[in-house]
């Protein structure tokens, strides 16, 4: 299949995504759910970054000194696509922010119920 031949990198991203999604849905421990969510987001970041790859190209930083001289012609095929990297900087920051807020909520949950297992918390809620 063409996917396995040329685009096997996308299979890695799909497997990682599946692991993260399974963790986020199936795990009962809230911290493990959060880990699953983080793996899920990381898989998407890897997907985007792999879009920008070009065979034999260099990183998107032009080699020029500090003299602000005009560059000779820049050939686009010699540098990888910088746009997915820019987008993923944003996505990484958003991911970190979400993890921070989720950890704060988990801390409050632990202070309130004494456990971070979802089934025990639900039991305590039903009992009270």
């Amino acid at each position: 299949m063409s996917v396995i031949e040329h685009n096997f990198i996308y299979l890695f991203f799909v497997v990682l995504l599946m692991i993260g999604l399974y963790g986020a849905i199936a795990k009962v421990n809230l911290v493990k759910k959060l880990f699953g969510l983080t793996i899920f987001q990381t898989a998407i970041i890897l997907f985007y970054v792999s879009i920008g790859q070009k065979k034999g190209a260099a990183i998107p930083i032009l080699e020029v000194g500090h003299g602000h001289q005009a560059l000779p012609d820049v050939v686009a095929a010699h540098y990888i696509n910088p746009l997915p990297h820019v987008l993923m900087l944003t996505a990484i920051v958003v991911g970190v922010a979400t993890v921070g807020v989720a950890l704060a909520v988990i801390q409050r949950l632990y202070a309130e119920y004494g456990t971070v297992e979802e089934d025990e918390i639900l039991e305590k809620i039903v009992r009270s």
Binding site: A24, K33, T98, A102, V105, E112, I121
Partner: peptide, 20 residues
Amino acid sequence: AFGGGRAYLATFHYIVMGTI
């Protein structure tokens, strides 16, 4: 989440589903 009490678990579920 500022609502406290049962809002914490509700927020956590919202975080998981919203992020997915």
